[in-house]
Computed example of a mutant assay.
Amino acid sequence: MHALLLPPGPALLEAVRRALDGGPAVLPLSPDLPRPALDAALAALRPTHLVTPDGVRRLPGGVPSDAAVIIATSGSTGTPKGVELPAGALTASARASLRRIGARPGERWLCCLPTSHISGMQVLVRSLLSGTDPVIHPRFSPEEAAASGAEHVSLVPTQLRRMIDAGVDLGRFRTILLGGAAALPGLLDEARRAGARVVVTYGMSETAGGCVYDGLPLDGVEVKAGGDGRIRIRGPVLFTGYRLREERPFEDGWFVTSDLGVIEDGRLTVLGRADDVIITGGEKVVASAVARVLAEHPGVRDVAVVGRPDPEWGEVVVAVVAGEVTRDGLRAFAKERLPAYAAPKVVEVVPEIPLLPNGKPDLVALRNGSGAFPGNGGGSA
């Protein structure tokens, strides 16, 4: 199993091609990883070789893998966990995606997401199945993305927001797949008014990326919500397990996710994560539900909601907002639409929501408070 410490480009794409054809399994890692994080990933996932632009080096204590691709996923804390994906899962996902959006052979994809994450990796796989080379942008720029000439692109909501704010022509893309984090309704409305064809996806590394498009499962994928409210997924897109771990979150062939959802008329609505609950003064508050309400405020451009420890309340509801709001104004807005205990007691205004490399909000930074990122103001309390 080869750990790839390569920038996005032809060498990485060729390594993925070989892995899908039965060659050595690959573990793509970001070349920008700090040395301690790289050492932790190599120690936990134990690849047999390390591939860099300077060549291939055998690593001591490496363990082969029967998978094609291993995606390291650990959020912002904890020991890296390796999601083992067989070639069949990756290609089943990519083929179903191409069919669902009506992509034609020869159409090109823009890759402007990290290839060490499943969203970027699947852009490479879709490109290989389409018979094209992806357009690769190591760093995201709204203007460069719009001028890429690609027909299809995968974005996270923050990237889409920045494209809208830059005033670029979103209609240049035949499809924008949007995933990685919850998309606020106002963002989708703006994008579609700007001419974008946005398809909202739901999935994760364990499902080889997005496996539900606009609430409907891809071909061959089954989705249900159990009695505990957790979303369960079955189908050819699933991972086989976590590398070198006994943990297996399966029930009778169904992968049990950490997300809560409901299914109505065959369409899935994701409510949030099972650990997305803030308990404040004994009341339970679903952070993502509060964020959706706050996003309707005309002064809110982007928002994330978290709980922070508090000696009196246990936790307090904190809204971190990009936009122009005040604490009292946002609390009043929330109280008209939510129970009073769910209104944020703390409001912090930032230039941008801090993100992880995969485009998801950096919840650790958000929970740590105003010292974790610059630009706070507008009514912290």
Rank of each mutant, 00 (worst) to 15 (best):
H117Q: 09
G22K: 02
T115Q: 15
V123N: 08
E324D: 15
Y341G: 10
S141M: 12
S288N: 10
R161G: 14
P7N: 07
R162Y: 05
T132G: 05
L5E: 10
R104K: 15
P217M: 13
V156W: 01
A146P: 07
A322D: 05
A87F: 04
S370F: 08
V168M: 00
R108M: 09
I279L: 09
L50H: 07
V277D: 11
R46F: 06
R301A: 08
D214P: 01
G359M: 10
P7C: 03
G131N: 11
V256I: 00
A92N: 14
R104W: 11
A41W: 03
L338F: 06
A15E: 13
V199C: 03
D259N: 10
G375L: 07
D165V: 10
P354I: 12
R174A: 06
G323H: 08
F140V: 14
E251K: 00
D165W: 13
A340G: 01
V270F: 09
V286T: 10
R18C: 02
L50C: 05
A319R: 07
V346H: 12
K284N: 08
E246T: 00
I279S: 08
R308Y: 08
A96Q: 04
P361S: 12
A25C: 11
G149R: 01
L356R: 15
A103C: 12
A11K: 02
S127T: 06
R197F: 10
P36I: 02
V256F: 04
L160T: 06
H137T: 05
V317G: 07
A43N: 01
D214L: 11
V56L: 12
R139L: 11
I233E: 04
I118W: 06
A365L: 05
P236Q: 07
D39V: 01
A365K: 14
G266K: 13
N358A: 13
